[in-house]
Design a protein around this nucleic acid. Sequence first.
DNA 1: GCTGTACTGCTTACACCGTACGCAGAAGTT
DNA 2: AACTTCTGCGTACGGTGTAAGCAGTACAGC
Lengths: 251, 251
Amino acid sequence: MSDADVELPEGIELAWGLRERPGKGPRRSLTLEQVVAAGIAVADSEGLAAVSMSRVAGEVGVATMSLYRYVPTKSDLLDLMLDTAYGGPPDPLDPDAGWRPALAHWATELLARIRRRPWVRHVPVGGPPMGPNQVRWLEQGLAALRDTDLRGTARLSTILLLSGYARTWASLTLDMAEAAVGSGVTPDEAGERYWRQLERLTRTGPYPELRRLMAEAAQDGDDEELDAEWRFGLDRILDGVAALVRDRPGG
Amino acid sequence: MSDADVELPEGIELAWGLRERPGKGPRRSLTLEQVVAAGIAVADSEGLAAVSMSRVAGEVGVATMSLYRYVPTKSDLLDLMLDTAYGGPPDPLDPDAGWRPALAHWATELLARIRRRPWVRHVPVGGPPMGPNQVRWLEQGLAALRDTDLRGTARLSTILLLSGYARTWASLTLDMAEAAVGSGVTPDEAGERYWRQLERLTRTGPYPELRRLMAEAAQDGDDEELDAEWRFGLDRILDGVAALVRDRPGG
DNA sequence: GCTGTACTGCTTACACCGTACGCAGAAGTT
DNA sequence: AACTTCTGCGTACGGTGTAAGCAGTACAGC
């Protein structure tokens, strides 16, 4: 075997379309894309917990076990759902605009994708990112730093930092909103409710910083304020990168 | 009901020890702490997937359903396990040393805690963080910024940014290491293996940045290099915060 | 003391899950 | 036509979380 034959997990090969069908037996009645789309449809309308093999099979009109002709395992199906739910990265901005708007665009679009399909944050991650769309996102993020003098590992760390922030931020805001729903409060009150609960818990005990923060945060908490906080963290990352790029001019 | 009675999820009240036992019936044979510790023991030795109600019950010597006298639901048990697995935040550094070492210490210790119990990254999050230890971590992180002139929401975003980075970084490195294990390769080769797989996938297709990066990353990949990459991202965040603090001197 | 009550741990039962296995039939190859 | 390989599917198995009910225990009030 040449060095070209690196062992790849079966699910990854499926995602990249590397499993060629010999076309010997009867024609398949479905495509992998249809199965994945059905899973996404269930998750979209009823949440990730509703995604069971039998539920997806029913959605697509086959028996439960037939799905295993397309997907080796449920976990692989979820991985595929995740990758196509993110979709490809957005069109890059005008490269002449510089790395900073490009990265901000990239990260903000990532946040938007998670918000559009909130269940993606609940998909258990099974290994380092290797899906085709995830790799395309990575490529696109690295490309935003093309004209800087950052070393390769530095670029990678930056992208990782940004994606981690987007996922963390999306999780927190979505968790807060969903925790508020089901208690009969409007989504606007989601944050406020969380702060009130925290205030109740920290009433006794040494939490001076938290209590000061809560007094401040009580009055504001609408969507605009939330968005401003997101942008704050984003700008801190980009400021940090900017400081480094300035420190090593003319690579 | 006064405003003191904010509805709190039962699991949260349990975590904070707010459920007082009337002491009417027979003595309980267990404590909540024992149940949680048993769950952690199972997760430590056999992974989070091995944590089932019957398994934990067996570990502690009671019947499965007896656990439900201590915990309303498995999800609550996992939340409790998570909170005690993180443990309390580390002792703060000398406050005179400034906010930057304090935050670096805080984030690095958080990373170490996740590494010590790798299963914590697989616990499905159920709502915004409200466990006692998580709140203490938050308080400690905010305290590191006490002597800066940052606004409250800015401090919160900074802490969120740091914790998100620590969790993302821990997940990636642990995922890579675990993906390599089971294929008979040493942990040192974990990163290298990942890059080789990525190289195989991106061989055909427009991935110029990734291919450049992989050529660079192929030769280095030991633990020291990994740690340097972690510190890079951390320093970028802190640089960004520093830029902001400098921009608003003497609040 | 006695009685009522609230709590204990436990057993049973249920619905559902992911998936290993084997089978009949369909579509290619020889 | 014979063989091979793949298809979709039915059955079955071991496991899951947990709702409901049950006998026994410890305390409260009388």
